[in-house]
């Protein structure tokens, strides 16, 4: 969740989006990005730090320079977020359903008292 918001925020800035798109085509160094965009090297470094914090890019050392590449896991952030939301929410739904089912069961006791075959798992 925190990561996803960070990712949204990070890509909300047009310069950062441009940097991210450039990196998505192939890994780039800070110098290469600064050479292609009207942005100073320190500013590029700053933007890269934000993208990295958001989990969208990672950096690897390539000899003396640092190269940035897109993290596939970052791209998955949106899906991961909803995966967690529904995991939790459906469990909550199941708990509420079980509660109703138990209440029903105890009020039905008089009539049948038979709950066989109801068990799931």
């Amino acid at each position: 969740m925190a990561n996803l918001e960070k990712a949204f925020e990070a890509l909300g800035d047009p310069t950062r989006l441009a940097i991210f798109q450039r990196i998505a085509t192939r890994p780039h160094s800070v110098g290469e990005i600064a050479g292609h965009l009207p942005v100073s090297r320190p500013a590029v470094s700053q933007h890269l730090r934000v993208l990295k914090d958001a989990g969208l890019v990672s950096d690897v050392k390539d000899g003396t320079r640092r190269v940035y590449e897109v993290r596939p896991e970052g791209i998955e952030a949106l899906r991961r977020y909803f995966d967690q939301v529904w995991e939790r929410n459906l469990k909550a739904f199941q708990a509420a359903a079980d509660k109703i089912s138990r209440e029903k069961g105890s009020s039905d006791d008089r009539s049948s008292g038979n709950k066989a075959g109801k068990k799931v798992h």
Binding site: L4, A7, F8, L11, L17, F20, Q21, A24, T25, R26, E69, V70, P72, E73, G74, I75, E76, L78, R79
Partner: peptide
């Protein structure tokens, strides 16, 4: 969703190893 589209667009800029990795992941 906008963020999803942005990411998808960014990745769609070229058929790259990144996209291949992304596809493999999903």
């Amino acid at each position: 969703h906008e963020a999803g589209a942005k990411i998808a667009e960014a990745v769609d800029q070229g058929w790259t190893p990144v996209l291949a990795a992304f596809k493999a992941l999903i």
